[in-house]
Amino acid sequence: MDWLASNWRTVIDLAGQHLYLAGVPLLLGLLLSLPLGWLAKRWRGAYPAVVTTSGLLYTIPSLALFIIMPIVLGTKILDPVNVIVAMTVYTVALLARTVADGLISVPDHVEQAATAMGYRGLRRLVGVELPLAVPVIAAGLRVAAVSNVSIVSVASLVGVSQLGSLLVDGWRRIIWGELVTGIVACLVLALLLDGLILLGAKALTPWRRVAGGAA
């Protein structure tokens, strides 16, 4: 507690940094996953490819990815962009499949009706398919959010500071207060993001809150 009392400004700063490094890739990853998921649904042959490739991406160790990024991107080793891009890769790894599954989960009779009414292309995706896929996509987004918050902390090993720095520093210097603060702050951040996504999904799906079927 003493440690936190004298360092809370640093903790807030690091938390802000952590949120940025985990949150921005979440949004970017979602944006990239939408077309991929749509492709996987549209051409069923693409589905296994999308799912397998994205699954493989997730197996790359995060430390390795953080180290490779500057080489691939030509950025400086301490540039936070490395982390943003790497985290985006992980987000896509988790979300591409979720988006595809979400779009596929749209009931067949709804798809048929949409077709029969002349819904096509982007208008169909935005007007019919995406809104109905929100529950599935939100579920995947929650997993990705928590996963991002956790993986980002590893970035302190390549010198990009965020809450993970507390863990590294606390461990090196055996400061229990710093270690515990780091862990708790990560948890709080993960819960916060999770809650935000949950609220967002609820706001987007008012139709799911109504009582089901009046007989």
Binding site: P107, H109, V110, Q112, A113, A114, T115, A116, M117, G118, R120, V128, P131, L132, T205, W207
Partner: peptide, 20 residues
């Protein structure tokens, strides 16, 4: 195609309403 379809009313089993 889309013009043809918009000029034809279509009703299916289970109505196929948009739940959202």
């Amino acid at each position: 195609q889309s013009e043809l379809r918009r000029g034809i009313g279509y009703v299916i089993q289970h109505a196929g309403l948009f739940p959202h």
